[in-house]
């Protein structure tokens, strides 16, 4: 008997949902806004699909209709990756503890 690779991916997916569930519950409420911006940034890992779509296939038809959608997706995902991580960094840099001398 052979197991369809889909089942393996489904297992990873289900387990990752549970990991996400427990990890996100442990996030402190004061960091919920950075949580949203960082999840935004990491979901842009969809760029890997965009890169394959843009570059794969015949090189002479680099701006063929299928590839152009890949390139457009690269731009969108890149905005999100850079914007998401940087704005998260900017926010997290502001969270400071009380100074000792006060």
């Amino acid at each position: 008997m052979e197991i369809d690779p889909f089942i393996f991916r489904l297992s990873i997916f289900i387990l990752a949902i549970f990991v996400g569930y427990y990890v996100v519950w442990s996030v402190t409420p004061s960091l919920h806004t950075p949580l949203m911006s960082v999840t935004n940034a990491i979901s842009s890992v969809i760029i890997v699909g965009a890169i394959v779509a843009a570059l794969a296939g015949d090189n002479s038809k680099i701006f063929d209709n299928a590839n152009i959608f890949g390139f457009l997706a690269i731009v969108l995902a890149a905005i999100n990756i850079f914007g998401g991580f940087l704005v998260t960094h900017r926010m997290l840099a502001m969270y400071k503890k009380k100074k000792k001398d006060k």
Binding site: F13, A16, I17, V19, G20, V23, W25, I42, I46, G49
Partner: peptide
């Protein structure tokens, strides 16, 4: 999309973000 492209990073991320948003 992760399932379509058979990409683990995308599947894991999708699950994380999906459950994160649901919890919030």
């Amino acid at each position: 999309i992760g399932f379509t492209l058979e990409n683990t990073a995308l599947i894991i991320t999708g699950a994380l973000v999906g459950s994160s948003g649901a919890i919030l």
